[in-house]
Nucleic acid binder design. Structure first.
Length: 500
RNA sequence: GCUCCCGUAGUGUAGUCCGGCCAAUCAUGAAGCCCUCUCGAGGCUUCGACUCGGGUUCAAAUCCCGACGGGAGCACCA
């Protein structure tokens, strides 16, 4: 029977079966599995190697969004268990960045405050016979693991292991000479899962906060599993690159009888044309290549803020992106679109002329123009210009070339001009000229300010800008036919950063 | 090499769990048109995708198998 025939026959039997509820297109994030309203605990866990960048914003915002939806608790957990990769300033910069992003933090936890807790858990795992102290060389231990073979320490008894662990804590071993290994399954087909390092010895680099108080440092898998349990996490969002870490950490949860949080692994994001790598940027700042963490060429949160991005646009972007396991390519176009939707409504319009060339207009003794501050908001008033002979304005070089070729051009809100033998002559102010296909260009009067607009490429666009009120400092405005910019300073020279 | 994950337009996304109203959603982009005033603003129109091959079924983007493609992990980093 064809589908059509079935349809007809079904109609005869029970036509209500043919009506299906329209499934609405889902808005926002998918529901969190097993989430109970008011009983959700999530975390954001950055390493304090620098301020936050675009890559961090995804998981920060997703966690925050879910916490808001379920009236949950957001924990900011600073993972500072590798003293080699800590920038002490990051302890302050990370909360600042989260605040700018509009992320509500309910609790802040610093892992270096919790070493004793990790040691306690280590002792419990040792007692369960699920850990050993290995003093083999790195290559030896790794090589055996690859062949599914135990190292000589794997079967040492609990008392011996405990004694060695206490000796580690007491500083009896040098850096690199002993590790605590958590047993998993040496025969596991996935080599990434077999026995993992729980603690190592670090003595060469003092901890920026704790100095040389500790010499035994937990590895990420150990401290993360411990804290995810102790902090009562219900849901964990993490990148797909942690898939194997989740499996490793599951061993600890199982040994200790802990209830596992619900894990969601999202796909990796590749951000084209962005400088994100914290270590690279740090070097660049020290060498003077970058002006600082907020250099507009960078993909840091503070650089985006400086450029005039709205936190709400970044949030909308990531919520739209969702949390699938598919890898995604970050789209500047899409985030610009979200930002534009927000900023376009509130950005006042001004004329900025880049690549400026002077243009004298003949045939008029005086000219004036009234231009709306915002075309959609007449109540914001008009920018007024008044010029007397000789009337000289500045226009964009390329615009002038095109205009001369075309023969006529419309100066926005000022008047029409005609070009004859290289001279520009005023042609009245009749707008019907537009019907004839004449182009509109913008301009600035002769008595205006110089301006520099810093582009995210590092390029600087110099030109002239009309006089902006001081109240625009710190705000995003639109330079017509140029783009949106965030104004840093209006006088005596305007400085602005290009948004998009 | 071993293990795991993922494949819907240029990009992101909805639909996939529970096969049918999906000749596949929304946004972005591109192209074109409109606008008495931003061809870098706004409005409208158009373009464009279920990775491939088998199987199951009356019916497959959706279920099964295989191939191919992409990504990640196999650290005394996080």
């Amino acid at each position: 029977m064809t589908p059509e025939a079935q349809h007809i026959e079904l109609e005869g039997i029970d036509s209500s079966l043919l009506v299906r509820e329209k499934s609405e297109r889902r808005v926002g994030l998918p529901p969190l599995p097993n989430a109970v309203q008011g009983n959700v605990v999530m975390r954001f866990a950055p390493g304090p190697s620098g301020p936050l960048h675009l890559g961090h914003t995804r998981v920060a915002i997703l966690n925050d969004d879910y916490c808001r939806t379920y009236d949950g608790k957001f924990i900011n957990r600073i993972e500072d268990t590798n003293p080699d990769k800590i920038d002490p300033d990051a302890y302050d910069m990370i909360p600042e960045d989260l605040e700018w992003l509009g992320v509500k933090v309910h609790q802040t936890v610093v892992q270096s405050d919790r070493f004793e807790l990790y040691y306690d858990v280590a002792r419990r795992i040792i007692e369960l016979g699920k850990a050993y102290i290995c003093t083999c060389s790195v290559e030896e231990w790794r090589g055996l693991k690859e062949k599914c073979l135990p190292c000589p320490h794997h079967e040492e008894d609990v008392a011996t292991t405990m004694e060695k662990f206490e000796k580690m804590l007491a500083g009896h071993y040098e850096e690199g000479k002993a590790i605590l290994v958590v047993k998993t399954d040496l025969k596991h087909p996935n080599p990434a899962i077999r026995d993992f390092v729980g603690f190592r010895i670090v003595t060469s680099t003092p901890h920026p906060l704790k100095g040389s108080k500790y010499c035994v440092y937990p590895m990420m898998n150990f401290s993360v599993a411990t804290d995810d349990h102790l902090l009562g996490l219900t849901h964990v969002l993490r990148g797909k690159d942690h898939l194997n870490n989740t499996l490793r950490q599951a061993y600890m949860f199982n040994y200790l009888g802990w209830e596992k949080p619900h894990y969601t692994h999202y796909g990796l994001v590749s951000v084209p044309d962005a400088i994100l790598k914290t270590s690279t940027v740090g070097i660049g700042i020290r060498s003077g290549e970058y002006s600082g963490w907020d250099d507009v060429r960078l993909g840091t949160v503070r650089a985006l803020a400086k450029r005039g991005f709205q936190a709400e646009a970044i949030r909308a972007y990531w919520v739209d992106c969702g949390i699938k396991e598919t890898d995604v390519e970050f789209s500047w176009d899409n985030i610009y679109a979200y930002n534009k939707a927000i900023v376009d409504k509130v950005a006042n319009r001004y004329f900025f002329v880049w690549d400026p060339v002077p243009l004298q207009i003949c045939g008029a003794q005086e000219l004036s123009a009234k231009v709306p501050v915002h075309p959609d908001h007449p109540e914001l008033g008009m920018r007024e210009f008044h010029m007397t002979s000789p009337i000289i304005i500045n226009v964009v070089e390329k615009d002038l070339q095109n205009a001369m070729e075309a023969g006529r051009v419309r100066l926005k809100d000022l008047g029409n001009v005609e070009f004859r033998s290289g001279k520009a002559t005023y042609l009245g102010n009749d707008l019907s000229i537009l019907k004839e296909g004449v182009r509109i260009i913008h301009w600035v009067p002769d008595n205006c300010y110089p301006a520099s607009v810093h582009m995210p490429t590092g390029e600087v666009k110099d030109g002239f800008v009309e006089v902006l009120p001081k109240t625009e400092e710190g705000k995003v405005v639109q330079f017509e036919r140029f783009g949106f910019v965030k104004v840093e300073k209006v006088a005596p020279k305007l400085v602005a950063y290009f948004t998009h």
